[in-house]
Write a protein that binds this DNA or RNA. Structure first.
Lengths: 148, 148
DNA sequence: GTGCCACTTCAAGTCGACTTGAGGTCAAGC
DNA sequence: GCTTGACCTCAAGTCGACTTGAAGTGGCAC
């Protein structure tokens, strides 16, 4: 497979080279080797970056993503963790869908205050069944920090 | 409607009182008044916090949320902004669904490396059609900062 | 063979979102 | 009347995720 210089990876992924080095430091990606000082990446790193990107927009921290997928590209042994993350995503998706519906409705509905519109309130309730606290990822972090 | 002390809001929302003060400072919420020094919140603030929470887990920054919904609870005049955010959410939801499918598959499929499993790769492609860069919210921020 | 420039390392800075701490206020219960 | 405890303000600290800057290195075009 073709070997890419960090600059090429940066260009093709749209990420800054510094970000790629940072990801390497965090154990999220790894160069296949070096040419002199310069890192050489396998083209497969682009898929991996895509995976990381989706994980990030799913609200997972870099550390969580690192835990889900080992640096060589194969997913973690811990199938339960993976399944748990999938469930987390289901919940996130449900809320996001409700939020999207709420936004679309808000963009269309002429009511002066949406908090008074029964339809909007119903959507909002759907979006927030369960706790209010917990901006997704933050929930876990907060718990973790709360312990210390 | 019942008026709540910051402690009650904190308890019922699960957010720290300091967070509520911070949100007020950012213009996301507003007390209906004060009893002495103490803030008094309308019970409706709980719904608003729910809305903020969902917005956060949708990957919107506090500033973006503030722009979407004015402090008195009515959504912004800018229907186009709202619709655009809804579209953003559609895209995010699509990716997240693919990621979830990928995770579930990874948890079930016995293949040694998922990057070699055609099903996983297909799912991943679905998750990442489009740019890699752009951990959701970050995409916009980066663009903004890149200009400076 | 030399100059350029994309790379390298490492430390420090930045940004958003909060949290923490110091020092102060005040209503209620003893 | 004095303590207690939940609130207040304001400044500073923290954390994750990067970015920036200084100083150095080395592959390649000329």
């Amino acid at each position: 497979m073709k070997e890419l210089d960090i600059g090429e990876v940066a260009q093709q992924s749209g990420l800054a080279a510094s970000t790629l080095r940072y990801y390497e430091e965090k154990g999220l990606i790894a160069p296949v080797g070096r040419r002199g000082l310069r890192r050489l990446f396998d083209a497969g790193v682009l898929e991996r970056l895509a995976l990381i990107s989706v994980g990030r927009s799913a609200g997972f921290s870099l550390d969580e993503i690192a835990r889900m997928f080992t640096p060589d590209g194969r997913p973690q042994i811990d199938r339960q963790l993976l399944a748990a993350k999938a469930d987390e995503l289901d919940e996130t998706i449900r809320k996001l869908s409700a939020m999207r519906d709420g936004l679309r409705h808000a963009a269309a509905c002429p009511a002066p205050s949406h908090m008074e519109c029964p339809k909007f309130r119903r959507i909002l309730r759907a979006a927030t069944s369960g706790a209010i606290a917990a901006p997704g990822k933050k929930a876990l972090q907060r718990k973790g920090r709360g312990q210390r």
